[in-house]
Amino acid sequence: MSEKFTVDKIVIASIILLLLGLPLLGFSQYVMRIVILMGIYTILALGLNILVGYTGLVSLGHAGFFAIGAYGTAYFMIQHSVGFIVALTIGTLLSGFMGFVLGLPTIRLSGTYLSIVTLGFAMIVQVVIMNWDSVTNGTLGMSQIPKPNILGYDLNLANHGIYYLMLFLLGLVTLGCYTIIHSKIGRTLRAIKSDELATTMMGIHIDRYKILAFVLSASITGLAGGFYATLSSYIDHNSFGFDLSILILCMVILGGMGTIRGMYLGAALLIIFPEIARPLMSWRFVVYGFVLIIMMHFRPQGVLGWRSRRKYPIPGEVKKSYRMVEVEE
């Protein structure tokens, strides 16, 4: 079809190749760890994007879901010696269930009021973590969380197993987001963001879709949390504060709300920035603040937040135009 389309394919293919071959470039474990963190934050951004970018519900409490995924996974791995995959699944489901519970108030609440409920939820999660000693080990945190072990193979930084596991999960979540967004589900979510009443007048049960958005978003975030727990092998309540919720939100908005590509860039920028700006000490957060303000002023839709100008493909027509191109050539 159009030239742009093939350019896109080439760009995506080379990024995938680069990601697959990255361990061959011989980066230090420190660098690889940061790359893996970037992957985790991309997953987090993709998760929050479903709510903020597509459905228009602003969550200020995604650190809560991240924590539930992380603690759920770690608890089952440590206390019940469950394998990584099962524990991660449990952590994801737990987080998804909490997403369902937190999604219920969306039936009655909107805007700022909903945001404050999500914020309160994350605060409550943090307090529960600090006090539910028998499960979370209180303020001491959970340590010695085993590295993922799949089919008898230990995945760690040294053998790059954990890097490829990250790539796999990231690919899975990206594909999942893509297929959901490009289906009637995604269309409905975007319609809800645009105009709730008009969406209802299309005969759509918007409450169900808002709750679904919460469940999906929370599950993805919980998945990232479970993976994060095994990567860092130690978690405590400090890892899941309000700052984290805000950081994910900034990634989504900086990269470009309602786009998938934007989540990759947003996460990469905000993870790399503090690393390369380390010599700036505390000034780096001042710079960070200025970057946010300047971005919001000059490019509020985010760096990659443009609307696609490509022709919308209508099946049947596509074949026709193919044939025409062939004839012309």
């Binding site: 602003v58 001042v286 946010l292």
Partner: peptide, 10 residues
């Protein structure tokens, strides 16, 4: 909203 977050960081 994001701008006020930036201001608070600064």
């Amino acid at each position: 909203l994001i701008t006020t977050i930036g201001v608070s960081y600064i």
